[in-house]
Design a protein around this nucleic acid. Structure first.
Lengths: 238, 238
DNA sequence: ATTTATAACTTGTATATACAAGTTATAAAT
DNA sequence: ATTTATAACTTGTATATACAAGTTATAAAT
């Protein structure tokens, strides 16, 4: 791979500060070093430092208070993507299980795919896989995923258990989710879905179709979700 | 009311540009005046202009492209709040109708209200109302709303038809939505809901419970939604 | 007519600086 | 001991400027 050009200073500052907060060096409520202190540390000037801090405000890492400083906050939840929550206690990692039903495989797009596809996407085809997620050994969420097959060498051999899809894309392929959309319906479970989710046929389930756009042109992630909400619900912070 | 201090220049720029885009003077895909042109018009310098443009990027009004300019975009939907969309054509204003079923009225909180309430909220009570929304004369969304009754004089006399709840709160009471959460289920419509939404009893509908926090302490907006998704779906951009 | 180079534009990153305005600890006055 | 003023800090807003780097229309060369 070609060595990429050096990061702009303000982006390095963003990365450094986010890392420090993520790692717990600064905890919620703590004051970040003042703008002038950061200027000295990074040998730069306030406009550059403030450019970085603006990004931390947007992503919810900090709030600023005039006269006081930059206060570390709870980072916002990611992108309005719904997570599954239980009615009672929080769901611990060990109560979550993911089963791969269809292993990642190269496919061509269906002729009447729900979303409109660009010519580049049509040419590239997709990588398809499906997963069934369990909470406390109860099947709760069936998910089919289509990823445009662009710049994803050896992806079909990756391990996608747990919550690792976004991690894998980010770590090995530098893919970041930029924005997206989701559509939501309530439908009656058909035969296949009711069997997967251990429900009576026709039981109300939440169906979602999502399109996530990434930082790489034409590389989009599409997913169809079918969720059993008898014991759990879909949850979203914004 | 006391005359507030003059708006900072960059905020005036934000307001002006947003207004121009909202009013359609610049349409999706159009190029905004270049930074240097805006500098001349407002008799200021690029850092100030860029401070304003940064805000427009964050709220999704524009995207910028190096070498080209600031391109007007589709503004992001607000705060991950789901809107109702049709399968076919876009929904025009005249196809939307809102019927007030229960007029705004002061109430006390239910003993086992779904969300936990602060002592101040319990003491203040709430303003309750319910609305039924139609698209093309089809009842699609039944919504019950509870607003903590704090600093809302004469609210029960306000007109809440159309999409004006947030506008009313903002315009007359300076209330802004800061953050929120939503929980989503698929349920079978009970007798009352199925009648309101003109569905067979037991038809799958989307049920949401939402809590929206505002800039005013203890003033929260709670709403229960019941949505008929046979002809339309809930839609969300993020 | 087509290709190539260039000039003139655009936004991206950065420095250097100034004063306004809010917060907080300290020193001075009572 | 308590109050008051001040100094030293913080972020907020703004000016002025410079060069890098991407885009596009135009002019020059072929």
């Amino acid at each position: 791979m070609r060595t990429s050009q050096p990061l702009p200073l303000y982006k390095k500052l963003i990365d450094d500060l986010k890392k420090l907060i993520d790692q717990g060096a600064f905890k919620k409520g703590d004051l970040l070093p003042s703008e002038n202190e950061l200027c000295k540390t990074y040998n730069t000037t306030r406009p550059t430092v403030r450019q970085a801090l603006a990004e931390l405000i947007n992503t919810g890492y900090i709030v600023r208070q005039q006269g006081k400083g930059s206060i570390v906050a709870e980072p916002k939840k990611g992108l309005g993507i719904l997570s599954v929550s239980g009615f009672t206690a929080g769901i611990h990692d060990k109560n979550l299980k993911t089963e791969i039903l269809d292993k990642p495989q190269k496919k061509t797009w269906d002729d009447n795919f729900f979303y409109e596809l660009s010519d580049e996407e049509l040419k590239a085809g997709n990588i398809y896989f499906s997963r069934l997620r369990y909470i406390n050994d109860l099947p709760v969420l069936f998910e089919e995923t289509f990823i445009t097959n662009i710049q994803l060498p050896r992806f079909t051999t990756r391990n996608l258990e747990d919550r690792s899809l976004f991690n894998t894309l980010n770590k090995y392929y530098q893919v970041e989710i930029k924005e997206g959309e989701q559509k939501i319906w309530a439908i009656g479970a058909d035969k296949k879905i009711s069997k997967l989710l251990a429900l009576k046929s026709g039981s109300p389930i939440v169906h979602m179709k999502r399109k996530l756009k990434t930082n790489i042109r034409n590389l989009n992630i599409y997913s169809w979700l079918y969720c059993n909400t008898e014991e759990y619900y879909l949850h979203d912070n914004f």
